[in-house]
């Protein structure tokens, strides 16, 4: 992967993101992936003068993750999207849509976690 990757933990993720902001970095977005054994991997992508930096956080899906939407307001949408797709809670989310940003109550399964298998429809 292009760019520098820094590993962070639940305790220092907000502080590291704050450092990035003070350094003048622009938050591009987050990416999420299934890190196995009920864990979610989140990559925070930053950009400054076309140079990429990524913070990697691997956390349990059932514990709340500190929100960085207080540091970067633009993290609000992507954190709500992750809430929709993975059913992960964020602590201190500025505007919490409570899993209704993209999904409606009819969708009871969690799309990107393992309990939904898609296949042909009739």
């Amino acid at each position: 992967m292009k760019g520098k990757v820094i590993d962070v933990t639940l305790d220092n993720v907000v502080g590291e993101v704050m450092n990035m902001k003070n350094d003048g970095q622009r938050l591009v977005s987050f990416s999420t992936y299934n890190a196995g054994e009920g864990k979610i991997g989140i990559l925070y992508h930053f950009d400054k003068a076309l140079e990429n930096t990524h913070l990697r956080l691997v956390a349990d899906m059932d514990k709340p993750i500190p929100s960085v939407s207080g540091v970067y307001f633009s993290a609000l949408l992507v954190e709500n999207e992750i809430r929709d797709q993975w059913d992960v809670k964020f602590d201190g989310l500025v505007l919490d849509f409570n899993r209704t940003l993209l999904l409606d109550p009819e969708v009871t399964k969690v799309p990107l976690a393992n309990n939904l298998k898609i296949g042909p429809k009739n």
Binding site: L102, L103, V107, K109, P111, L116, I118, G119, P120, K121
Partner: peptide, 13 residues
């Protein structure tokens, strides 16, 4: 019919 997205989880058809 739902086209290329027919299997996606949020698509009714």
């Amino acid at each position: 019919t739902g086209g290329v997205f027919r299997e996606a989880y949020n698509v009714v058809g």
